[in-house]
Design a binder for these strands. Sequence first.
DNA 1: ATGTTCCTTCTTTTT
DNA 2: GAAGGAACAT
Length: 725
Amino acid sequence: MDELDELGNPSVSNSILENLNDSQKEAVSAPLSNMLVIAGAGTGKTRVLVSRIAYLIKHYMIEPRNILAVTFTNKAAGEMRERIGLFVGEFLQRQLWASTFHSICLRLLRAYSKQAGLEPNFTVLDTDSQTTLTKRIMKELNIDVKEFKPSEAVSKICKLKEDGLRADDYIKRGRIFGESQYENMCKIYSAYEKICNDENSVDFSELLLRTVELLESNDEIRALQHRRFKEILVDEFQDTNSIQYKFLRLMAGKNSHVMVVGDDDQSIYGWRGADYTNMHKFLKDFDDVHEILLALNYRSSQKILDMANTLIAENSDRLMEKVLKGNIGQGDDVSILNCSNNNCEASAVVQLIAKLHEAGEKYKDMAILYRNNYLSLGFEQSLSMKHIPFVIYGGQRFFERAEILDTLAYLRLLINENDDTAALRIINVPSRKLGPKVVADLRAIGRERNCSMLQAIRLLEAYSKQEGADKALVSLYKKVTPFYNLILQMKEKKENAPLHELVDYVINASGLHEMYALKDAKEGKTGEENSRVSNLGVLVSNVKEFEASMNAQVAKEATAEEAKDINADNSENTASDGEITSTALEDPLLTYLSNITLVSTSELDEDGSSSTECDAVNMMTIHSSKGLEFKHVFLVGFENTILPSQRSVDIGSDKSISEERRLAYVGITRAKEDLYISYAQNRSMFGNIVTTGASQFLRQIVRSYNEVKKEDRPFKIIPIASQRY
DNA sequence: ATGTTCCTTCTTTTT
DNA sequence: GAAGGAACAT
């Protein structure tokens, strides 16, 4: 290649386009325009996205700071940044925004908190606090939390926010035909909104909604974003919900271009609002959309792809029919294991794993995928019995553990003393003899004076020093004094010590350490890897890690500032959005807490450590396997009532079954070389034995090969009889 | 205020 | 079958 660019230098774009196929090249090197890339499973979607960004920077000379890349998970954002760094170097990579919808909104809201109607130190409400808060509201409104579950109310609030409806809008809208709990929801939502505002906190959907409202109402801020973000790229576009779509439309200006990449066949989050028809809408709402299809699969053998193609062809609501074509050969037959019950399914799978390992395969190249978390149990036991190492992804998450949430509640209170939700969580944890009575008294004062519990205590402090103070109030103050002093001491520590010392102090001074040590001891877990005390330790080291990365970032930002000064001539919008980049000036605790709520999982698995390096069999739900690939895949519990789930069958709509079928499709397309699909005729579930049998999806696949000679089918069915191992 | 026992519930999950 | 929550007793 001796192509030269306009300046007569060898073209840098060649190295970016190297090793891409024609349609990938077309996407990466397309002219600056709006683009919809439909990328089937394993067709190099992320690669195209990363290469496109590199191409924008190196070929079109777009400044990294004018590029916004949106992903769904922090993990995906991190990977993307890393891979872009390989192309354009770390210095340029650091200037571009690559993060999740929620992180972007958080950043914008911090920068424009005043315009968005928030105090700058607002906190992000995690799911647990959100449910607790809602429960509290429902109890105060005398709504039966058995009949109408707080979690249902929470998801309703989320849905309403996703539709852009505030409590007032919801009340104005009135009840929709067939809508249950409308009157209750009106009350709950109004109260919820008020408390969040009073407590200066926002939940996840609020991050999006508030940003959308800000951009809609503030022409200046919107124009600023338009000037800044010339190129916007979105990964996993089939997973966007309506408010995220709205956000994208608002962020894109007349002269910006948006490139979205997605696969409607892999849309498996419809149940939480994702709407893959946004891909369709995109074509209508954005001008001159350049459409590109990636169908060449680099991941799986043809027989695996044939199974996947046959399955997904049954879906009638696809936006586009895609037939995945592989380029790594036919491969082996897919094995379908017909097991008589779940126990022999587990032993058969484990035996196969052992056999593969004996043949020299690595455990970490194998994965067991299942529809529901509880299905992992039998496989865990069988693997343990054979002393085969395994890692379970998902399950209970580190930042959702009680001991961690307790610690975080103390920390949140130090940042934002309006946060009654946090205060209520820990005022009596560990026990300080501050029961419901004391709490009710404090909240009564709070209501009267329109302030939070902590501020109520402060008022009490001043009041009880007065002559002739009310005895009941003085005794109330005496009761809460130790707690109040504890918080004051923590605040002092916060000012005078590094973050990790503060966290360590909070854990010990609060008595949480002692309390959880006792609990561990009772369960005989002292010193164990997963004990509560060790989790608290992990939290402290996580804070240390965060501090270290913050310090590194501050150093880098300083050099970046210098560089900016040097190129000051090209600074049309340097000053105008400078405030967004100044994360370094923020309170480190505030930054840490926001990060925690937005980042939480994935990097830290259930041990709280990043244990990716060891050779162990991977176990996870099909949902969490999206985007991953493994040499050998065991797709287990491929049964009626499980996949498709009973609930989706009960709903009875094509839509709900289609999503389950896509889920099965995602599972199948994770496999590179070997795919084993297993099902049991009988399964013991929740204590009793249920007859399940092969999934309707499997029967459909098999049926469609009825006319094909056995040796030409892409699969073989192997009966596994009940026997003892 | 707290410890005990019974009863319910039981997708998928990121942010 | 296990875990978390609510009602009940201490």
